[in-house]
């Protein structure tokens, strides 16, 4: 079983961080699950197109880049535009309704949520939109156990209890959304 996940948006939205959480959860806290992650971004850290390719598989992974994703998270219009022609009928497209207007006639199953707005309402800023989205994806498509993701937060942000708490809260919110 192999799942190819693209996380895309603009720099500063924490997409690489989500990729790391998925990879950590799979590598460290799941039984026999392999993960790869490649990131590409502009030379500026913030504001330009960024994407992270994450592959999860029960077998060792060969080619680590993704052409046509099984799951894609789009947090910016520029990112959506880059990928919309690569969606298959069964591609799950998660997008932020505040940031992305889906193309008419685009392939894929679209799931729109106001991640950014929900993040502001829950935490007071936009920084948790990525983690809410992760919760939604995990809820819809059981890529990872919820506990594995929680452990990954604790591992990744060890010693920063407040950040762990915010992530757990945002992730929990995502899990609860239909």
């Amino acid at each position: 079983m192999k799942t190819e996940i693209v996380l895309c948006g603009v720099g500063g939205q924490g997409l690489i961080s989500v990729g790391e959480i998925i990879g950590l959860a799979a590598s460290l806290f799941e039984e026999r699950l392999y993960a790869t992650m490649t990131a590409s971004y502009g030379s500026e850290t913030r504001g330009t197109f960024t994407k992270t390719d994450v592959i999860l598989s029960d077998q060792p992974i060969g080619y680590p880049n993704i052409d046509s994703p099984d799951v894609i998270l789009c947090l910016a219009q520029v990112a959506y535009e880059r990928y919309k022609d690569k969606f298959r009928d069964d591609t799950e497209v998660y997008y932020d309704t505040d940031m992305v207007i889906p193309a008419e006639g685009a392939k894929g199953k679209h799931f729109g949520y106001a991640f950014r707005t929900m993040s502001i309402e829950t935490t007071g800023n936009t920084q948790a939109a990525n983690t809410i989205a992760l919760g939604v994806i995990i809820h819809h498509r059981h890529l990872l156990h919820k506990e594995a993701v929680m452990k990954a937060f604790a591992h990744r942000f060890a010693g920063r209890d407040q950040i762990i708490a915010i992530n757990e809260k945002a992730f929990g919110l995502g899990l609860s959304l239909e």
């Binding site: 990729g19 790391e20 990879g23 799979a26 590598s27 699950l33 392999y34 993960a35 790869t36 992650m37 490649t38 990131a39 992974i61 680590p64």
Partner: peptide, 10 residues
């Protein structure tokens, strides 16, 4: 560059 920047399970 690919292997240097690739993250994976190790």
């Amino acid at each position: 560059e690919v292997i240097g920047h690739l993250r994976e399970t190790v």
